[in-house]
Design a protein around this nucleic acid. Structure first.
Lengths: 235, 235
DNA sequence: CTATTAATTGTAATTTTGACATTTAATAGA
DNA sequence: TCTATTAAATGTCAAAATTACAATTAATAG
């Protein structure tokens, strides 16, 4: 009952930062500079202060530990096992961020000891952070199946091969490029530009941008873009 | 940084309990027996103890305040605004439960002052509980679009009209019964029984049960059962 | 000018959807 | 016993979407 005296518990934030570099999906990690677990890899974490909201704390902590600002950030899940933190009983509220790696290369200065790791090959993490990353991956797959949220991983201008690489990376499969592009273009969410990206190939691939006007009204068209029996894990 | 001294905050649980009675979707609420907000309606809530996990706390609190045990319970979201609780700064982790009202009528004894309200017409709630219910409704719609989780709302034996009433209630629309049943049956998730429910009509409607064997392997077939542009709100 | 590489575009059979009406099973009352 | 009533169950067809495939095009490098 809430009229009894409230026990107080440490409340922390942990941030899972996903990044895409045009080819691979990556995970941002930092090496701990203090005990316990000194020098081990971990997510960006910190405590929630009494005078700030949990959402504000996530923004502050991500910024303090990486320099990142203005990125897409969404609450994932509260992790509340009693022994999850060896220091003291701590409830951690995990957030995940989605960023275009190239765009935030400046912000992510060398002052911070944050490093990108391939999502398919990163070091073992402290506490229950591995579990957090696993859940975040699933949530991303889940959410992307119904929502064009993964465009947060792309630059403003992107090519069809890049989008497909992104979806391939998120779902860890290879979509048929003919069917994929047909379906994606049928959403009317993309605007084709005259410009081409000539870095990836001799022929070059046309740039596209998100059609902000149609973004909201056609959100639903992204539905079922991805869902197939074999590639979607469940929460 | 986590090596600083951790501030401690009250951590609470709030439970949104959805129930289905064969016709309508309902919400379980209790009337507060203490100040502040005495006699006002609220979700089932309580504090997380230092020696119990957050998940365990949600189970305990739901049981203590309603008598309900063994029901489907899933974490929804952590609510962390500074002023959300007028008593003191409290982070609340909301959970939602899905139950078949008839099945738990016994457990939900009169000892507890919990009452069912229609989801479309329930009293204004304390603190940010209205917001919690809104989010839970959306999450249920979202999740049900990809996952047969709403079967938790039905009894073991149910009729096609009952399932459709449930989906109609969850999405607040009326599906075409011919297309709905065709699609649902195509999933192979249901087993038709010989028995009929004669309460609802003269003709009676055949009972079905969930095919537990196919449940996991055919989970994906429930996909896109529901999704249409006009009935899905976004998180 | 030609070979190479990757982007772009195409097609046909199959399946699924969406919109719509009729038939069937059981009971209650004449 | 027959008939009216009520709600469940089932059927159809055109349109759209999906799937599984391969051929063409644009640009560069040698």
């Amino acid at each position: 009952m809430k009229n009894k005296k409230a026990p107080h518990i440490a409340v922390a934030i942990d941030c899972i930062v996903f990044g895409f570099d045009g080819t691979d999906l990556k995970l941002l990690l930092i090496q701990r500079g203090f005990n316990p677990e000194l020098h081990k890899w971990s997510l960006m974490g910190g405590y929630v202060n009494p005078e700030e909201s949990v959402d504000d704390a996530s923004v502050r902590i991500l910024h303090q530990l990486t320099g990142l600002q203005g990125v897409y950030l969404e609450q994932l899940h509260a992790f509340g096992a009693v022994q999850r933190d060896t220091t003291e009983r701590t409830v951690s509220i995990a957030y995940f961020a989605l960023i275009d790696i190239a765009r935030y290369k400046q912000q992510l200065s060398a002052d911070y000891h944050a490093e990108w790791f391939p999502i398919r090959d990163f070091p073992s993490l402290i506490f229950d952070h591995n579990e957090m990353v696993e859940l975040a991956k699933k949530r991303l797959q889940y959410k992307a199946a119904l929502h064009p949220v993964v465009f947060e991983l792309l630059p403003q201008k992107f090519t069809l091969p890049q989008i497909q690489s992104m979806y391939d990376a998120v779902y860890e499969i290879n979509f048929d490029k003919r069917n994929f592009s047909r379906k994606l273009l049928s959403t009317d969410l993309l605007i084709k530009l005259d410009e081409k990206d000539k870095l990836g190939s001799k022929k070059g691939a046309f740039y596209y941008t998100l059609n902000k006007d149609k973004y909201k009204e056609n959100l639903y068209k992204i539905f079922s873009l991805i869902i197939t029996p074999d590639n979607l894990q469940f929460l």
